[in-house]
Amino acid sequence: MTDQTASAFYQVYEVFSQRSAGSPMVHQFSLLAPNEDMALLLAKENFFRREPCTNLWVVRRDHIRMTDEDERLMFQRMDKVYRETKGYGEVRRQWRKYISEEEER
């Protein structure tokens, strides 16, 4: 089998596992397999020997959509300071300052 036919035959799959019910899925490793059934079988053979888990996912890498550069920039621009509680400690001081300025007028 040549490199070109091998790359057309095998797909890259990402393997995720869940340790117990209610815990999050965690990425474990990537593997090459000809189809999703073989990918699941290879993931079971490799992963179940290492540690127990309750759920196992295999996802073809090209079926995972990632954010592009423009979308990542959009997330950085979102100012959500109003959701943070660090500013509330200053409210009493600012309120007193405002009242004293109003009294001076």
Rank of each mutant, 00 (worst) to 15 (best):
M1S: 09
M1G: 11
D3T: 13
D3Y: 12
D3K: 12
D3S: 13
Q4R: 05
Q4P: 01
T5H: 11
T5G: 04
T5E: 15
T5N: 13
T5S: 14
S7F: 09
A8H: 10
F9R: 10
Y10H: 13
Y10W: 14
Q11N: 14
Y13L: 11
E14Y: 07
V15S: 02
F16S: 12
F16I: 07
F16P: 01
Q18I: 01
A21E: 08
G22H: 03
P24C: 00
M25F: 09
M25S: 08
M25K: 04
M25V: 00
V26M: 01
H27E: 02
Q28F: 02
F29M: 05
F29L: 11
F29N: 02
S30K: 06
S30V: 03
S30G: 06
S30Q: 07
L32G: 01
L32A: 07
L32Y: 11
A33D: 00
P34H: 03
N35V: 03
E36M: 14
M38N: 03
L40W: 01
L42R: 10
L42Q: 06
L42K: 05
K44H: 12
E45W: 00
E45F: 01
N46K: 10
N46G: 12
N46E: 11
F47Q: 05
F47T: 03
F48M: 04
R49C: 09
R49Q: 10
R50C: 03
R50E: 04
E51G: 09
P52N: 10
P52F: 07
C53F: 10
T54H: 05
L56H: 09
L56V: 13
V58A: 12
V58I: 15
R60I: 04
R61P: 02
D62P: 02
H63I: 01
I64S: 04
R65E: 09
R65M: 06
M66L: 13
M66G: 11
M66N: 11
M66E: 15
T67A: 13
D68S: 10
E69Y: 15
E69K: 13
D70L: 12
E71L: 14
E71P: 05
L73R: 15
L73N: 15
M74Y: 07
M74P: 00
M74R: 09
F75M: 12
Q76F: 06
Q76I: 05
Q76P: 00
M78W: 08
M78Q: 11
M78E: 11
D79E: 15
K80E: 01
K80A: 04
V81Q: 01
V81D: 03
Y82W: 05
R83C: 00
R83D: 00
E84G: 08
E84N: 11
T85M: 08
T85W: 04
K86R: 06
K86M: 03
G89H: 04
E90A: 08
E90C: 03
V91M: 06
R92K: 14
R92I: 10
R93C: 04
R93M: 06
Q94R: 14
Q94Y: 10
Q94K: 15
W95K: 06
R96M: 09
R96D: 07
K97H: 15
I99A: 02
I99P: 01
E101M: 12
E101Q: 13
E101D: 13
E102G: 09
E104S: 10
R105V: 02
R105I: 00
